[in-house]
Amino acid sequence: MEQFLKDYLGDCKYTHLSKCEFQGSYIRVNNPQLFIADPGDEFPVKIVTNQEEYQLTVENPNSVDLCVVKTDNCLFNDDIQKSDCIVFNDTNFYLVEIKENSSGNRNKKRNKAVEQLSSTLEALINAGVNLSNHDVKAIICFSRSDNYPIRASANSQRANFQSKFNASLEEGNTIIM
């Protein structure tokens, strides 16, 4: 899949400006647990230690090879609305949009995240990326997830993702590979 994505979408579009520890868009890891942070301010996501501030935990209990793709401000250039990162292995393909929720406006941020995840999936499909052999999930990551009370529109958005992209739309801050 990594080669496939590189063929269709290339690599980091900001290499000349990058101050990232990992220069490319694709980070290969097999740690049993990963912590991902979105630094904001037009920087791409980065892998951090659990002593630092992070929003997303990736559980990889079997320590399989997986790839974290920095998408926003890295793989994609600014004219495409996109999610923050993709985490995939041979069977799972998870797109993640991280939203900081300490400043409120969760509803607006969720709807924005749905748009970003949707347009990232559209961009991948339009680029010819074949996701049919993967379990595809689009994940909205708030640092504190909250699924109560029920929201009709959130269910509608899940139904739309399933019918448009054959992908599950979820909300959470931990993904299990």
């Binding site: 929201r151 009709a152 529109s153 269910n155 509608s156 019918s163």
Partner: peptide
């Protein structure tokens, strides 16, 4: 989609 979209209750 024929489904309910974002609204005041949500």
């Amino acid at each position: 989609s024929g489904l309910i979209k974002n609204n005041y209750i949500d």
